Simulated assay, not measured.
Amino acid sequence: MGSMGQWLTAKNCSIGREDLLIGEKLDAAADEGYPRVELWWPFGTPEPAAEEMDELVAGLEKRGQQLVALNAWAGDMAGGERGILHQRDMPVGHIDALDYLHQRTGVRRFNVLLGADGREASAAQVARFGQVQSQLERRFGGVAMVEPLSGMENYPVQTVVDAECVIAQVGGGLLLDVYHLAVNTGVSGVDEIVDSVRPEHVQVADSPGRGAPGTGELPLGEWMRRLRNAGYAGEIVGEWLPS
C-alpha cells in the first residue's frame, strides 16, 4: 500500500463481501485496523424494522466502530439496478430509516444513486434526488451524495461535470471515487480536477483491477496529498475488492 496508508481514514466493509453476514464484514474491517467504516445498504428492504437496524448499531458499538457513510437503498443491485429515482420517488419509509440510523450512529452522508435509464439524467430524476437531499437536510443536516460511476453505459452520472450539474440544480454533495473517475477519464482526467474539485466524500481503489493501493497504476497517494493541500478535510475511504 506504500505511502497511501497515511491518507486512509476508513474502510468500506461491503465491497466484495456480499456473501458475508454484516458482523463478519465489520470483523474484516476491524481485523484490518479500521475503526471507521462505510457500508452499502445492508438490509434486504428499503424499510427495515427497528430491530434490524438496532442489530447493526449493536454490532458497530461492540467493535468500537463509527459509521461514516452509507449507501442509500438502490433497488435490486444484484439484478443490475443502480437506484430507482428514474422510476419513482424514494419511499418515505426509507428516509425514516436513514433518519433512524443517523440518530443511532451519527451517520449523515448517504450515497444516493439516480437510476440507470440512459446517459442523460431526466428532470424527474434530478427532482427526485433533490427531494431526498431536501428531506435529509431538513431532518438532521444530512447530505445526499452524487457519485460518478464506471462500467455502466446507461448511467447518467459518469464524470464530475455530470455530478456537479445535478448538485447545482438541487443541492447535495460530490462523492469522488477516484477509481471510477480514472476508469472513465483516465489518469489525465483525474489530474485535471483533483486540485480544484470540492468533494463531500472520497473513496479510493487502484486501477486496473479495483484492488488495494499499490496493486495497479494510479498515483493515489499523490492525488490524496493534493486533495488535502487543496483543503479537503473529509474521509478518505478504501473501497477496493479483497485480494
Rank of each mutant, 00 (worst) to 15 (best):
R128L: 13
A127D: 03
F110A: 06
D206V: 13
R108W: 05
K11V: 04
H201D: 02
A144W: 13
R82C: 12
P199V: 06
E55C: 04
G142R: 12
Y232G: 06
L227N: 06
G231A: 01
N71R: 12
Q169E: 10
P199W: 13
N111Q: 11
V178M: 15
G23K: 08
P42Y: 09
L174K: 05
G33L: 13
G80V: 14
E200Q: 03
S207M: 12
W7R: 00
L85S: 00
G79L: 02
V194R: 07
P42Q: 12
G142K: 14
Q87K: 15
G130V: 14
G44Y: 03
G75N: 08
G80K: 13
D206K: 09
V126S: 12
H201I: 02
D54I: 09
E147T: 07
G221T: 03
K11D: 00
H180G: 09
Q158Y: 06
E38K: 07
V132S: 07
N12R: 03
K25P: 00
G151D: 11
G221N: 01
E38F: 14
E51T: 06
L218N: 09
L60S: 07
G173P: 07
G171L: 11
A230D: 04
Q169Y: 03
V178P: 01
V178F: 15
L113G: 03
C13A: 13
T215Y: 08
D206I: 04
A168D: 04
V197P: 01
R109T: 11
L220F: 06
K62Q: 14
V183R: 15
S122R: 11
A72L: 14
E192D: 08
L20V: 00
L39A: 10
L67N: 06
G115Y: 14
G79W: 15
S243N: 12
L21P: 00
A212Y: 02
T9A: 01
G59R: 15
W41V: 10
N71H: 15
M4C: 05
G151Y: 13
E51G: 01
S3F: 01
L21V: 02
V197K: 02
Q133I: 10
N184C: 14
T105Q: 09
Y100S: 05
D99L: 11
E18M: 01
P242G: 04
Q103M: 12
A50P: 01
